[in-house]
Each structure stands twice: as C-alpha cells, then as structure tokens.
C-alpha cells in the first residue's frame, strides 16, 4: 500500500533525519519526500510518500509522538 503523509516539522537539529529514520526502522519505505520552508521560519513543511504492507495509521501515530513533529495534517491512501 502506498500513502501520503503531510506534516509540519520543527527546524531543529536532526529533525528530518529523525523522521526518515523512524519510517525505515518501523518497516516502511520512503518513495518520495519533499521538505520546504514554511511561512514560519521555525518550521518546515514535509510531504512524503510511503510504501509498506504495514498499516498507515500506526506509522502516523509513531510520527506524532516525535518531539519535533508539530502537526500531522493529512494522510491519504494512494494505491493498494
């Protein structure tokens, strides 16, 4: 299954690496990732496409726990 996750991330030391590392460690594969500055210089907007047999909601809950994740805004299934 492939799905998209959109999140806001603090621009803190290692924040993006921490998110990407979590995705891989939990058994998901990053297919595409885009990170760009947001209007607020303290945060960045990240959109990623992720693939796995494992459920999307579990990964989202893991991500939501990260200290640097300000908000997980969206998750949509793209294909089976």
């Amino acid at each position: 299954m492939t799905f998209a996750i959109q999140l806001q991330l603090k621009r803190a030391e290692g924040a993006l690496v921490r998110v990407l590392g979590l995705v891989g460690r939990r058994g998901y594969e990053v297919i595409r990732v885009e990170a760009r500055p947001s209007g607020d210089e303290r945060v960045m907007d990240v959109v990623m496409t992720v693939q796995s047999d494992r459920p999307a909601d579990v990964l989202v809950r893991h991500m939501a726990k990260l200290f640097d994740v300000v908000e997980i805004q969206e998750m949509r299934e793209m294909s089976k």
Binding site: E13, G14, V17, G21, L66, F67
Partner: peptide, 12 residues
C-alpha cells in the same frame, strides 16, 4: 547524536 537517535525518546 546520530548514533543514539534510534534508541532515544528524544535528543538535544
């Protein structure tokens, strides 16, 4: 910081 990242709740 990098070595411990997978095994901490958070790091500074």
């Amino acid at each position: 910081f990098g070595i411990t990242m997978p095994v901490v709740k958070h790091s500074f």
